[in-house]
Design a protein around this nucleic acid. Structure first.
Lengths: 189, 189
DNA sequence: GTCTATAGGTAGATAGAC
DNA sequence: GTCTATCTACCTATAGAC
């Protein structure tokens, strides 16, 4: 017997499958048909919900933000109030720990970030904005005495992204959080 | 008047254009036809030289190694002879400086590395091998007193890759070598 | 809301002329 | 060695039945 899904559940199921497929093959590399197969639908049925491949990607980015960005933003309080070094390290560890629990989101991010370097990629504008915001937030967080927060933010963000990609490549063969803590301990004075 | 090219020059010109195109759109995202257009040929003419899209990719990886790997390997001498911290930092700076002069190779590497996370990607095996070798080499280089070289190698490689990607994303808007030196100075005890 | 059918385009690859 | 022509397959997207 076929389980019926309402509109919202169906959209959510498609988007979660899309996060995995796009993370694996990229925006150019995946096909609506392949994704529809994973959702036990036809391509026409899937397109009914999203209209076009590009609109689907934008919906995926929205969902990624919903799942991830809000939680991260909650960990990264606004305002330039200086924090202690220990507090900063704790916040960074919490972010990495959260990412370690969602490898498919890390992979989607890594894939689209590289693809979206191309100015004509549908996610290009999204990542330009997102990256600027991330650097600004990290610079606020890393506003430590005697430091240039912008330069430090760039280095910390880069090291975090690089280590997460390495973690995917080694098939999660090392403890991401522990290794990150070692990096952060040295990188942040 | 049309300039004639011999076989080897033609192959080289195609491979250099392929490095750029694949770096921009990925293996799945680019087409033989698009690449042939950039080389002022037809797709059939291009395929005469490489046989298939996959074989072209493998030839691209060979060429990347020829251009890059040999030079890097020369900077990273073999053997476990311990080096001073200053020597190590100098070697790392030389590697990054070389990469800064070849952004198209950095971009190709970043793109294929993420795509090749998929086990069925034609470059998957290549990157598994290459990554293991890179970590081993860096571990030899970073064999400093009182350090666990494997763990440190992973962190240093990750930070380097992450910063290079950031440098591409900000359209080379910061000094890659200077920023890397700041990172390395802190990351390596 | 999901299907079948199909339009219209592009892909990789091959055959054969020159 | 490069071309034109072509094959087969797959793509996105739409139209319309149910």
């Amino acid at each position: 017997m076929r389980t019926r899904m309402n509109r919202e559940d169906r959209r959510t199921a498609i988007l979660d499958a899309a996060i995995a497929v796009i993370g694996e093959r990229g925006f150019h590399g995946f096909s609506i048909r392949e994704l529809a197969l994973r959702c036990a639908m036809t391509d026409a049925g899937l397109l009914h919900h999203f209209g076009s491949k590009t609109d689907l990607l934008l919906a995926v980015l929205d969902r990624r933000d919903m799942q991830d960005e809000h939680a991260i933003a909650a960990l990264l309080p606004h305002g330039a109030a200086p924090r202690s070094r220990a507090q900063v390290l704790q916040v960074l560890a919490a972010i990495v720990a959260r990412n370690a629990q969602h490898p498919e989101l890390v992979r989607l991010y890594a894939m689209l970030r590289v693809e979206a370097l191309a100015a004509d990629h549908p996610a290009h504008a999204y990542f330009v904005t997102r990256d600027r915001m991330a650097r600004r937030r990290f610079a606020e967080l890393l506003n430590l005495p005697g430091e240039a927060p912008d330069r430090l933010a760039r280095q910390v963000l880069s090291a975090m992204d690089g280590l997460e990609l390495q973690w995917l490549q080694e098939e999660r063969g090392f403890d991401l959080v522990a290794t990150w803590n070692e990096t952060a301990e040295r990188l942040i004075p």
